[in-house]
Design a protein around this nucleic acid. Structure first.
Lengths: 203, 203
DNA sequence: GTCTATATGGCGATAGAC
DNA sequence: GTCTATCGCCATATAGAC
């Protein structure tokens, strides 16, 4: 009874694989690395997942999908648009503070294998158009400064995500590799963005 | 005389290697890939560069260093600080529009091998502290809104670089994989940022 | 389900002919 | 300087014993 059931083992492998793939990338990870992280024999990986590609597909889907509810929940919420911006900031910070490498992982893997985008978006049901239309209406009503709503959306995501993607560079240049100082900076940034960004887009 | 001289061949290899490494990453690139791109026999790579590591070190240094003059020139210019912001936007756009994958390449490689940061910074002589101090003085004089100068600097770099790093995602979600539409978006963004960002930081 | 043993192929690197 | 041939290693994947 202390032998893991099939589902338990699959979960255990998936979680270990996620940690390793996210940290070292698909090409930089061997099946041995994953087996070590899951503390199982390497051959067992092929028993549960027939190939590295299949395993990676699962991991990528798991990671990518986590980024979507943060947007989807917000889009459908019944709150003013400035409050939606604050919610996006909070939710992405929650995800990225917990697993800081996911941002660069997703961007890198999607960049080298763009076909993943198509299927990932298809399975997600995400509708950014809805948020863009709401931003547009608020601009028409004169509550937000007039501009291209897509520029505003890209601004928001840039300001949130880039510091995590560029963590090593920023930590090295601005904080002399002091990880704790960087974490304080990110923590400050969460509230900083909620006032700075919202202020900068209001009409 | 139509045989390439040693220096010409080294340059040719370095340029080919840069294209392949930037596009597929270090771990995702084989020496055969580089040889094919340079249209030479694979063994010649080992003649000119003893190992993949040595070749990659050169490529990374070449790519990383390109990002620094954009900042260094600006820091020492004798112009108002708002004009410096505009110069940074122009210069980074020039680099990134020419080779859009360099952003994600640098961020990914630095993330998986952080030690590269230390040596790259050391050899660059970059002094962001100088720019931060100038921003601080402008805040004291009441010409810029008061805040943490590092947050402002990170905002600027985020707004410029992130759209390139996330190109595949943005192109897929916002532009249905229409590359030309994305390019127009980026072109608009350059002038958009110069007014939007400068406006948002002025006191 | 889990292991040992092994097949098969690609990789980085070098020796040696020219 | 440039090639062919080859070494040794590690990767993915599978066969087969238990």
């Amino acid at each position: 009874m202390d032998q893991p059931l099939s589902n338990e083992m699959e979960t255990r492998i998936a979680e270990a694989a996620t940690r390793v793939f996210v940290r070292k990338g698909k090409a930089g990870t061997s099946m041995q690395d994953v087996a070590d992280e899951a503390m199982i024999n390497r051959t067992l990986l092929n028993y549960y997942f027939r190939s590295k590609d299949k395993l990676f597909d699962l991991v990528f889907q798991r990671v990518f999908v986590r980024f979507l509810p943060a947007l989807a929940n917000v889009i459908n919420a019944s709150v003013p648009v400035e409050e939606k911006f604050r919610m996006v900031i909070d939710q992405y910070h929650e995800i990225l503070e917990e697993s800081p490498y996911t941002a660069i992982f997703v961007l890198h893997e999607v960049s080298t294998e763009p076909h993943r985008m198509v299927q990932a978006i298809g399975q997600s049901g995400i509708r950014p158009a809805t948020l863009l239309e709401e931003i547009n209406r608020e601009m028409d009503k004169g509550r937000l400064k007039k501009s291209d709503p897509r520029q505003l959306l890209v601004n928001l995501l840039s300001l949130i995500i880039f510091p995590f993607a560029a963590r090593t560079v920023i930590e090295g240049i601005l904080f002399s590799n002091d990880t704790e100082a960087f974490k304080r900076f990110i923590d400050d940034r969460k509230s900083y963005l909620k006032t700075y960004f919202v202020e900068s887009v209001k009409a």
